[in-house]
Design a protein around this nucleic acid. Structure first.
Lengths: 168, 168
DNA sequence: TTAAACTTTCAATACTTTTTGAAAGTTCAG
DNA sequence: CTGAACTTTCAAAAAGTATTGAAAGTTTAA
């Protein structure tokens, strides 16, 4: 397996992992391509390498820029836009996790809280039971959510080392 | 909003959350229904309540049984199979996480390891750069994976409290 | 052993998401 | 200004996933 094949395998693997975690395959592949490219790439480079359409390349790039895990790079004497990947794994892992938590977990937490309040007043056994179920899930989710927030805002080495030490 | 509406809202919310995390909507809804039901339910009960087909109900139940987050329950004097949900949130959260890690993360780790070895020998600057990228990602993933394993095998209160204390 | 009661399977169909690419929009050097 | 170079949009098409339900399979009481 030569370098090109290795890079291709990395891109493909990253693409499948993305799909399984609800991240669009093309988006994941574009990030992977930029991660393993030793030079900044233009939209056309990406289209050609991954054989995807202009629209797809553009949308994938925009989403990665939104996530803040790739950057635009201006090359002197060239009007084209080039892109490079954030190489610090911790940095982009945290950004993706924050984004998804906000978009997916927080709304669920709000519904849970609402249902908890709504059903607090119900005095039937069935109502009490439902209230307890919702309450348990809400409490658990809240603890996890707090933990996640703390981890997101701390910096890598420090916290991760502490965690590993405790847990080993 | 009465109890029935509340339960319905819970089921719907759970279904959407599931979808976003790559868990089949019906599967998530069946778990939610069993979680909020005060009595064991049969396949037909589930079909009727969620208005899904027999095949779908059956496959969803089987998957949840595989995950170990619902149980079969035999009701005396009845040939039908009934199902109840595991109510301990920590227990099923851990089971789902373990399952997904095993199925999705572990294979990726293997590919990363393989690519790391493959490219170790390449002496060009481009090869070295790729090797470093893969190595960084592999190391990070490995640390996270170890942490996850430790958390999975410890029990809730004990560890979570320690984590929270450190992090607060 | 039978047949009724129940569970499982799977090919066909419906639904959702992703991708395409032509057209519209923007920017900037001359 | 102008038009060439580049970026963005979006409706239509393709690809991917989930769901259905009839048929096949299994179990059990009598």
């Amino acid at each position: 397996m030569d370098l090109q094949e290795s890079k291709q395998k990395f891109i493909d693997t990253w693409g499948s992992l993305g799909s399984e975690w609800g991240i669009n395959k093309s988006v994941a592949q574009v990030q992977a391509l930029l991660l393993v490219s030793s030079t900044p790439l233009s939209t056309d480079d990406i289209m050609d390498t991954l054989t995807i359409s202009r629209g797809n390349a553009n949308m994938s790039l925009r989403q990665l820029l939104d996530y803040g895990i790739i950057y635009k790079k201006v090359l002197a004497g060239d009007r084209k836009e080039y892109f490079v990947a954030e190489k610090d794994v911790w940095k982009w892992a945290v950004r993706i996790a924050m984004m998804r938590k906000q978009k997916e977990i927080d709304p669920v937490m709000n519904v849970l809280k609402e249902l908890k309040e709504e059903t607090k007043k119900i005095k039937t056994p069935e109502g009490k039971e439902f209230n307890k179920t919702v309450d348990d899930i809400h409490l658990f989710t809240e603890q996890m959510s707090n933990l996640a927030d703390k981890i997101f805002t701390s910096n890598r080495g420090e916290l991760l080392l502490k965690l590993l030490k405790i847990v080993m």
